[in-house]
Design a protein around this nucleic acid. Structure first.
Length: 439
RNA sequence: GCCCUGGUAGUAUAGUCCGGCCCAGUAUAGGCGGCUGUCACCCGCCUGACCCGGGUUCAAAUCCCGGCCAGGGCGCCA
């Protein structure tokens, strides 16, 4: 089919702006056909744009032949322009509709579409992800990604106002240095390189120069995890602050959570309604539960864990039932935390690391960092890592490393929390997991 | 890596347990026709599917074996 040029047409109004008060006004709408209802003598076209939908009404005996013919060609998801006149009428959705004078078909869509863009006929997540752009037309998808945007906007503003400077650290790194999570190796010209699993070491170094930094960026984990809360590529919100301890940055974390909840609750009512979800603003401060106490609580629930053991998923689910909102788990055994987390001076078996939990899901993890070079080297060795491969990082400890602390929040888990989605893939535009690499 | 469950039109499902009544039913999408106030419009007609390979059987969507794919869980995961 021959498609039309946009020509000099520019949008005068978004769909949501078509109201009875505009009665008689000529408007130009640009968007996509979401649905069609042909009653013979009258035809209804539901036009969707980024702000919503509006009804285009085509009464046969009023419209000129050429425009009428054009409306006969329309199909779901065709990209169109409509020049027409607003008519206030109670029978129309929102009390107003547009009677077209002229229609331009700007893009066509092959039928039948792989999924129902109105969302009435449900599709499995796998099918939806294969046709992601169509899936993103659905109201729920729109709501999720608008909330995600709000969360990011609120987080950036909050941290900036607290004096943090936004930085970007490399995602291509030279060696698999951190231990722990597996890295993705990549071909970097004639050498091997890796995708960064975290900005951890860089953000620590940058406290020397900027004192308070934050980064919102991608991180990569080559774990073979296959659950509803794991991805191989996700966005991490990281902060690092000089002259601070775990307790200082925990305060920032809880204030941020509180702030974000408030922003979402106040600004995303429409989206939350679409998602049939509510957000409660938590009270401050959040509970701080030492690891020892967690072990005790679990024991009361008949879940035995030896001191020094990690907490398995089943146990987290129990904790989520006992503490059904935000809480910190503090004073973790040093052996369970990465090498850069500071052991307590008076009891080195216990660390100044913490996790921020929401129900049973880990939202963030952080702590006071080691800023003493000798201790850091000792801890590296204890974790079976080679100080030689941390040469460049360790060198910065000769350049006046301040005492510092920080944390990292998994953005997607935060978005899941605010949207009530149970599958992390729902809140990422193009998710990457163990098995999905396209689209 | 391990465990469980599943794979039927574009999409979502019924049928599978207990083989035959299924050249596979329904909804929605799609095609054609009709209809001037729909808003999951309606009505009529039509198109379209048993994941792949092997086996058992007179007979397989249905039972068995292998593979592939998917979903969920566990482990792994600062």
């Amino acid at each position: 089919m021959k498609i039309d040029d946009l020509g000099c047409w520019r949008r005068t109004h978004y769909s949501a702006e078509i109201r009875p008060e505009l009665d008689g006004k000529e408007v130009i709408l640009l968007g996509w056909v979401r649905d069609l209802r042909d009653l013979g003598g009258i035809r209804f076209i539901i036009l969707q744009d980024r702000e919503g939908t509006v009804q285009i009404t085509v009464p046969r005996n009023v419209i000129d032949d050429q425009t009428l013919k054009k409306t006969e060609l329309l199909q779901r998801q065709y990209c169109i322009g409509v020049k027409g006149v607003v008519r206030a009428i109670e029978k129309a959705p929102r009390g107003a509709e547009v009677i077209p004078k002229s229609i331009r078909i700007l893009g066509v869509a092959k039928q039948p579409l792989p999924i129902d863009i109105t969302g009435r006929t449900p599709a499995d997540i796998d099918v939806r992800l294969d046709a992601r752009v169509l899936d993103l037309r659905r109201d729920e998808s729109q709501a999720i990604f608008r909330i995600r945007h709000k969360i990011l906007e609120a987080t950036r503003r909050f941290l900036s106002e607290k004096g943090f400077i936004e930085v970007h650290t490399p995602k291509i790194i030279a060696s698999a240095t951190e231990g722990g999570a597996a890295l993705f190796p990549i071909a970097y010209f004639e050498r091997e390189a890796f995708l960064a699993q975290s900005p951890q070491l860089y953000k620590e170094q940058l406290t020397i120069c900027f004192e308070k930094v934050f980064e919102i960026g991608p991180t990569f984990r080559a774990e073979k995890s296959h659950t509803r809360r794991h991805l191989t590529e996700f966005i991490s919100i990281d902060i690092e602050e000089a002259f601070a301890t775990a307790e200082d940055v925990m305060k920032i974390a809880e204030e941020l959570m509180c702030h974000v909840c408030k922003v979402v609750k106040e600004n995303c009512q429409r989206e939350l309604k679409v998602l049939k979800h509510t957000v409660e603003v938590p009270g401050l401060p959040f509970k701080r539960i030492p690891y020892d106490e967690v072990i005790r609580e679990l024991k009361e629930e008949k879940f035995e864990i030896e001191w020094g053991e990690d907490i398995p998923t089943a146990a987290y689910r129990i904790l989520g039932r006992i503490h059904p909102y935000f809480y910190f788990i503090t004073e973790w055994p040093t052996s369970l935390k990465p090498f850069y987390i500071k052991p307590k001076d008076e009891n080195p078996e216990v660390s100044e690391g913490f996790d921020l939990m929401w129900h049973w899901i880990e939202i963030a993890s952080g702590g006071t960092r080691i800023h003493n070079k000798e201790l850091l080297i000792k801890r590296l060795k204890e974790q079976g890592l080679h100080p030689e491969s941390f040469k460049y990082h360790l060198k910065t400890f000769d350049y006046g490393m301040p005492p510092h602390a920080g944390w990292a929040i998994g953005l997607e888990r935060l978005v899941m929390m605010h949207t009530g989605r149970k599958n992390i893939r729902e809140v990422v535009l193009y998710p990457r997991d163990r098995f999905r690499l396209t689209p």
